[in-house]
Simulated assay, not measured.
Amino acid sequence: MFHPTVARLTYRALLGRRRALILFALPALLVIIALAVRMIAGADDSTAGGILGGFALGTMVPLIGVIAGTGAIGPEIDDGSVVYLLAKPVPRPTIILTKLLVAIGVTVAFSAVPVLLAGFLLNGNSQQIAVGYAVAAAVASVAYSALFLLFGTITRHAVVFGLVYALVWEALVGTLVPGAKTLSIQQWALAVGQKAAAEGAIISDVQLPLAIGLLVALTVAATWYAGRRLKALTLAGEE
């Protein structure tokens, strides 16, 4: 279910010059902020949690997910080059799964790893905050990649929809509106990260069993439907 050629082409597309600049810029900004705060204010658990939870998990991770998830397939559908891929004797579910795994790998590398580094810079991993938020970022990366990959298969405006979801729903509604928090990938990921950190260091409004169930359900459903959408694309001459 993993195709090396599709993976190589997807990596090349995601790490092209324009996307690579954005992918590197966001983690670099997080690390710079963490270093500056540590030099100015010293180690502080509350400040570390605010930066890692607010900027990193609340903004940076979903934005990277948008770039990786939609970029894994959206541009190929938009410019029509996907027909060359679909003409190959590769099952379409395999194409989707391969692209999802690549998107997850890129999102984890550019989000969870910088979050871990920033956490150590901010407070030396006091109360396991760095590890907890890094785990949350990795878990969120999986769900974001699946969701935004799905967006890439159903609309030509996948990036716009992804940004609306990331910046409006996750960063604003899902953080401030109590009822909406249950439907927030960020809150689900925090529930997992909460178990990796010291008690009380990370707080989520969603219970862990529900969070895991929703994360799995979203990832599986989005991947399955993305595969269905790709199968629905027909080539000239196909019956």
Score class of each variant (00 low, 15 high):
residue 112 A to C: 07
residue 84 Y to Q: 04
residue 133 Y to G: 14
residue 169 W to G: 01
residue 66 V to E: 06
residue 7 A to Q: 00
residue 61 V to Q: 12
residue 22 I to D: 00
residue 163 L to N: 05
residue 58 G to F: 09
residue 10 T to D: 11
residue 161 F to Q: 07
residue 142 V to L: 06
residue 41 A to F: 15
residue 192 V to T: 11
residue 214 L to M: 15
residue 129 I to E: 08
residue 148 F to D: 06
residue 220 V to T: 04
residue 181 K to A: 13
residue 44 D to Q: 13
residue 148 F to E: 02
residue 93 P to E: 04
residue 41 A to V: 14
residue 183 L to S: 08
residue 99 K to Y: 03
residue 6 V to E: 07
residue 70 T to Q: 06
residue 80 G to N: 09
residue 109 A to I: 07
residue 69 G to C: 08
residue 81 S to T: 05
residue 169 W to M: 07
residue 15 L to A: 08
residue 145 S to D: 04
residue 122 L to P: 05
residue 221 A to L: 15
residue 89 P to D: 06
residue 136 A to L: 13
residue 114 P to C: 09
residue 134 A to V: 12
residue 197 A to N: 07
residue 6 V to T: 11
residue 210 L to T: 15
residue 90 V to R: 06
residue 140 A to R: 00
residue 185 I to D: 11
residue 95 I to S: 02
residue 201 A to D: 00
residue 126 S to L: 10
residue 20 A to L: 15
residue 236 A to E: 05
residue 34 A to R: 07
residue 206 V to E: 08
residue 30 L to E: 09
residue 218 L to E: 08
residue 179 G to M: 11
residue 31 V to N: 02
residue 188 W to I: 12
residue 138 A to C: 10
residue 51 I to G: 08
residue 178 P to L: 10
residue 87 A to F: 02
residue 56 A to L: 12
residue 39 M to Q: 10
residue 178 P to S: 07
residue 161 F to E: 04
residue 10 T to A: 10
residue 18 R to T: 11
residue 112 A to I: 09
residue 196 A to Y: 01
residue 148 F to Q: 03
residue 35 L to V: 09
residue 47 T to N: 13
residue 149 L to R: 02
residue 37 V to D: 05
residue 174 G to H: 14
residue 2 F to A: 08
residue 91 P to Q: 02
residue 72 A to W: 07
residue 36 A to Q: 09
residue 29 L to H: 01
residue 158 A to C: 12
residue 151 F to N: 11
residue 155 T to D: 13
residue 79 D to K: 00
residue 160 V to H: 01
residue 113 V to M: 05
residue 228 R to K: 11
residue 39 M to I: 08
